[in-house]
Design a protein around this nucleic acid. Structure first.
Length: 901
RNA sequence: GGACCCGUGGCUCAGCGGUUAGAGCACUCGGUUCACAUCCGAGGGGUCGCUGGUUCGAAUCCAGCCGGGUCCACCA
């Protein structure tokens, strides 16, 4: 990477009437990247780096709008802002191999070509070998990874590409392997036969988090279980209700609630499982819902999670009647060999024949499905690797509880605690091919589990029996197993690298709330486990981008490509539109209108810049001091001093908003200042034809300085247009901040404001509005000159007489006048326009009525306990308001009196 | 079964204890093309979901209810 500090010529020369993002975006990004602006410089003593990890996108396709929101909307804004604050900033890029999601995507692609994944019961001739398939996976990765990285660059993300990582890079694989081995040695990983979610389509297990629930209506069958022993006459039959009669053949008990008066006397007695005729016990277990069905539950530990747990509590046998392909096993007796749907029909048939089917009714209930493919969950008991979570969760809960880690918005902390405090063990092995290998071998001869030492080669001999028949675990790890390590593994862990020492723990983790458990919580746990410290101090969770009421996403078919939006409206417009009008954590609806507003705002800023540059070119000698130092001196007009003061106000406010993570408010406030105050007001006053003679140079200096400030203030959100203008502006003179680029320039510090001037100028603006309103009301051509007289407390407005006149084509006089007044607080504004006296009377009466209402509000307020109980400044303010309203009423009454009767 | 979030102008959302509740879009009227394939100016439009309570004062805090959304959970 060669330093290339000279800004691109194309950008320096660019001058469209309206801003064309495509003319500068690529040039600028290439320049930024190749100049090393996104790479933190050498460490310095006492520094406080800003470190953020990119929420690594899955290499499954192109980026969508949700990515654009997080990456381009919030994260780059933060990264650029902190960099401008002088913090060495590392925003580390990368991507995720995405395990099963990616495998499904590639399988679908291959299916189109007629090739498929080899499987025990698939035809091997149609399939690929594992190596061949992994070759296809890598081909996909090699194609899409650069595309995703390109799209991140298009968004303008200031990522340090010299540190890019991919979760399946060889060194990442090594770190994952070491992590597994260490956790295993510490007893956090174990292998056990437990009930798991099994996907018949994907042929793999999955975790609770990956299970979704849908509401479905099924048939609930009531089935009679006969007593296995002689019972007294009149003893009721045991009837259970089930939606899965085919699993009856694997029942190993019937459970009732221990305090259920109907049943508790039968606990310990035996019944016969229909069809298979096995004797099973009636057990008492509090998990049974007395209100459901008959209050008796068939217990099938092999095929139901609740039943499995009941089984554990009562030492019940586990029978597996369904195999991983969805067919009935020999254990299913007469149903063996049928698939599960056929088995259900066959079972119901047999129950009917034997008179054991009491009745059937529809039931609407929740059914678990696999989030990746929608296939109904088939709970099975299998040997899997599990991670023991409770001990890992404990310090991670503590870290949030004691404030070491802060979650924004705050309410998400509750959700975090809720999940973490009830955390369950995590099944980490997956029966797929694409992913991190599990570093475990099994001895064929003695069943020994062989886990190699860290960095040891793959074992070839059983340490226990010396057998060389070792079988490598064919499973891979859940994709989140590797991403949980991301914040430290990418910095070099387990080696004690200088990056790790300098950049861990990080600062902020910004991502969508939907992966709080999947990723954020697990990074916290693994960071604390491996590093003894949290991976970040602040978690900022943004909302989801919705299209209408639905979450936007590719699977929903309503995804809009951010790439297209960048091409049509520019990256700046998109980035700005995504964060504006959104508060922390809230889902937001994205619309064409917002994007269009973004484009217009970017264009407005561009034209503000063009205007300033044009003025600068016309008076090249105007700049006497550095561009980025506030101009001062007697040559400045009231308008100049006003916008300078307002600029300092904007610096104060925008800094505060970003510090407080109020990015939506930041966007709004920025637009308000640039568009309304700077463009609509100040620039109008800065035009040469409106300037008092001799003040032109002051206007140019003010414009240059304010533009410099505004570009810095806007840069974190809209980097391209601001950089283009900054480079062009800075070519006109010298600066105190010599940074070659806005990227490396300093965020402004707020200087002194002139509160009195701002207050009075604000009043002048109100007067201007009133004049315009009166004139429009009277139907006078806005270009025509009107006579305006300012009375009442107008003295403070004298310095702004020319400004008022200039913006309203009015001849302004102070005191007296024939017009009918409009009131701006205690200032009378008389606009002399042709009119009907009757209309004036009506208008005055209406104004008087309004003024009296307000006066009444003030009087009532001050007569109440408010005066005694409210804080003094609040009361003083109310009294001032009362005085103004009294003056207003008096003035209107005097005016009406003048009109006569 | 638990828990969370949201109900503010036609639309998308800010505001979350202090005078007359804001913005963008949309709408109406007027002007301009001299930084802005536009832009500027002015205007109309809201009993802040409902009902109580706390407070000198509530869109803002509390409780209940209604409506919308979401998460967690072993209802067969």
């Amino acid at each position: 990477m060669t330093a290339q500090l000279k800004a691109p010529e194309a950008v320096l020369r660019y001058s469209g009437k309206s801003f064309d993002p495509s003319a500068v975006e690529t040039f600028l990004y290439d320049w930024w990247e190749s100049s090393g602006f996104f790479t933190p410089g050498p460490a310095t003593p006492g520094e406080t780096p800003f470190v953020m990890m990119l929420p690594l996108p899955n290499v499954t396709g192109d980026l969508h709008l949700g990515h654009a929101l997080g990456f381009g909307g919030y994260e780059d804004l933060m990264a650029r802002w902190h960099r401008m604050r002088g913090e060495p900033t590392l925003w580390l890029p990368g991507s995720d191999h995405a395990g099963i999601i990616a495998q499904i995507v590639v399988e679908k692609e291959l299916a189109k070509e007629g090739a498929g994944r080899t499987n025990a019961s698939d035809s091997p001739t149609l399939g690929l070998t594992r190596d061949e398939f992994l070759g296809e996976m890598w081909r996909w990765m090699d194609h899409y990874k650069p595309r995703i990285y390109k799209q991140l660059r298009m968004l303008g993300c200031s990522l340090d590409w010299t540190r890019v990582h991919f979760t399946m890079d060889p060194d990442m694989q090594r770190r994952v392997r070491i992590h597994f081995i260490r956790l295993y040695r510490k007893g956090h990983l174990y292998r056990a036969d437990r009930i798991v979610h099994w996907c018949l389509t994907c042929q793999t297990t999955y975790s609770d988090l990956e299970a979704l629930h849908i509401v479905r209506t099924d048939e609930l069958s009531y089935v009679r279980y006969r007593w296995a022993e002689a019972m007294p006459a009149g003893t009721p039959d045991v009837v259970v209700a089930t939606t899965r009669p085919e699993t009856i053949v694997a029942d190993t008990a019937v459970a009732v609630h221990p305090e259920d008066d109907r049943w508790k006397g039968f606990i310990g007695r035996e019944v016969l499982v229909p069809v298979s005729e096995r004797k099973v016990k009636i057990v008492g277990d509090a998990a049974v819902d007395r209100a459901f069905g008959t209050g008796a539950l068939k217990v099938t530990p092999g095929h139901d999670a609740t039943d499995f747990e009941i089984g554990q509590r009562h030492g019940l046998q586990v029978l597996s009647a369904i195999d991983p392909r969805g067919f009935m096993t020999p254990a299913a007796g007469p149903l063996a060999g049928l698939d599960r749907d056929a088995a259900r029909i066959a079972m119901l048939e047999k129950l009917k024949e034997q008179g054991l089917l009491v009745r059937q009714e529809p039931i609407t209930h929740n059914v678990g499905i696999h989030d990746r493919c929608g296939t109904v969950d088939e709970p099975l008991v299998m040997k899997q690797w599990w991670m023991k979570m409770a001990p890992l969760a404990k310090p991670a809960i503590e870290a949030v509880r004691d404030g070491t880690v802060r979650i924004i918005p705050k309410y998400q902390e509750k959700i975090y605690f809720e999940w973490m405090e009830n955390i369950r063990d995590w099944p980490v092995s997956r029966q797929i091919w694409w992913g991190h290998a599990i570093p475990v071998w099994y001895c064929t001869d003695c069943d020994e589990i062989v886990v190699p030492a860290e960095d040891a080669p793959d074992p070839t001999t059983c340490p226990k029996c010396r057998s060389t028949e070792l079988r490598h675990d064919p499973d891979v790890l859940d994709t989140w197993f590797s991403s949980a390590l991301w914040p430290h593994s990418t910095l070099g862990w387990p080696e004690e690298t200088s990056d790790l020492a300098r950049f861990y723990p990080g600062s902020v983790l910004e991502t969508g709330w939907d992966i709080l458990f999947f990723w954020v919580a697990r990074m916290l746990m693994m960071g604390l486990e491996n590093m003894g410290d949290v991976p970040f101090r602040t978690v900022y969770l943004h909302g989801l981008v919705r299209a209408g009421r639905q979450k936007m996403g590719k699977s929903k078919g309503n995804a809009v490509s951010p790439v297209e939006m960048i091409q049509s409206h520019g990256a700046d417009a998109l980035r700005y539109a995504l964060v504006s009008g959104v508060s922390a954590g809230a889902d937001s609806e994205f619309s064409e209108g917002k994007l269009e507003n973004g484009r217009r705002f970017v264009n407005k800023l561009w034209n503000v810049g063009r205007f300033a540059l044009t003025q600068l070119e016309a008076r090249p000698a105007a700049l006497s001091g550095p561009i980025d130092v506030a101009p001062a001196g007697a040559a400045l007009t009231e308008a100049d001093r006003w916008i300078l003061s307002r600029t300092e106000a904007a610096i104060e406010e925008l800094t505060r908003l970003i510090e407080q993570y109020q990015f939506g408010e930041y966007a709004t406030a920025l637009q308000q200042f640039v568009w309304t105050e700077l463009a609509d007001f100040y620039i109008e006053l800065a035009k040469p034809q409106r300037r008092p003679a001799g003040s032109e140079d002051a206007a140019v200096r003010t414009l240059a300085y304010v533009l410099d400030r505004v570009l810095r203030l806007a840069h974190p959100s809209i980097p391209f247009v601001t950089e283009t203008l900054a480079l062009q502006l800075w070519a006109h003179g010298h600066r105190s901040d010599p940074a070659p680029s806005l990227v490396t320039s300093r965020w402004p510090e707020a200087g002194a404001r002139d509160a009195v001037l701002e207050e009075r100028f604000g009043l002048a603006i109100e007067v201007i509005r009133r004049i315009r309103e009166r004139r429009q009301e009277a139907g006078v051509d806005p270009r025509a000159t009107v006579q305006v007289a300012l009375g009442g407390d107008a003295a403070a407005l004298e310095p702004f007489a020319e400004i008022i006149a200039s913006l309203t084509s009015a001849l302004v006089r102070f005191g007296g006048g024939e017009g009918v007044p409009t009131l701006v607080r205690a200032v009378e504004v008389r606009v002399d326009v042709p009119r009907e006296a009757a209309a004036d009377r009506a208008r005055l009466e209406k104004e008087l009525a309004e003024a009296l209402t307000l006066l009444d509000h003030s009087e009532t307020l001050l007569r109440s306990d408010f005066a005694k109980r409210a804080p003094a400044p609040v009361v003083a303010k109310a009294r001032a308001t009362l005085a103004e309203r009294e003056a207003a009423v008096a003035s209107l009454r005097a005016e009406l009196a003048k009109l006569g009767t």
